[in-house]
Write a protein that binds this DNA or RNA. Structure first.
Lengths: 111, 111
DNA sequence: GATAATCATAAGTCATAGCTTATCATAATC
DNA sequence: GATTATGATAAGCTATGACTTATGATTATC
């Protein structure tokens, strides 16, 4: 199974994180989000598109408004990736620990 | 507790993800990584710095080389965030579902 | 039906982040 | 000790992505 890291990309931007966290705290409309943030309404809509594509949020039309709320799907996909990473990579990590040889430390590793 | 999303930022870049996945598959030196990737050695070093700061990888000096391997710390922090997100946000999500009113769907939600 | 409100998309600007080459520091080898 | 190998950092260039204003589409309201 191949993972495209859409969630990481979506959550890498600070403003988009604020949008996501505001929605996580409470479902909200686009204008409400725009009012709470220091960016324009189109900027918010653009961020919402990215979050939507990552299935981190969902839009629910309510009259002329769009109420956005958390979508469990995206978080679930992240969890699945993290779990497989955990078992695979950390399994390999444990192996590396166990078969590690004695090495005299000659210098400091980078910062 | 406040989370700074360093891991997401680190894993948002495609080249940096390749670096991470190569290391996850097998501990490797910087030159080996540079040989396997279509970018220069300094580029690899710069990516490694970001991954290091996010505690996703660790450097282990072995002679003149630096062998990089997975650091469980970063993945653990990610898991902690995801778990809290899961309980908090999805708890709120369930509440929203339960108290949801009947709404006639008047238009399609955005793509 | 006209007006107002909400929100998505288009087009264009600009700052940031990732890349390069150049260089320095440290460790191994002859 | 001189040379080679390894890798981190510096400085500068450039492409990507986040922002803006403008606009169109849909829904509610008068």
């Amino acid at each position: 199974m191949t993972y495209d890291y859409r969630h990481m990309v979506a959550l890498a931007d600070p403003t988009r994180r604020q949008v996501f966290e505001l929605i996580a705290a409470n479902p909200r409309s686009v204008t409400e989000l725009a009012r709470l943030l220091p960016v324009s309404q189109p900027a918010v809509s653009q961020h919402l598109k990215v979050l939507r594509d990552a299935r981190l949020v969902r839009a629910e039309p309510r009259g002329a408004s769009n109420i956005y709320h958390i979508d469990p799907e995206g978080l679930g996909e992240m969890r699945a990736w993290l779990d497989s990473m955990w078992t695979d990579a950390l399994g390999a990590f444990r192996d590396a620990i166990n078969t590690k040889r004695e090495t005299k430390v000659c210098r400091q590793p980078p910062r």
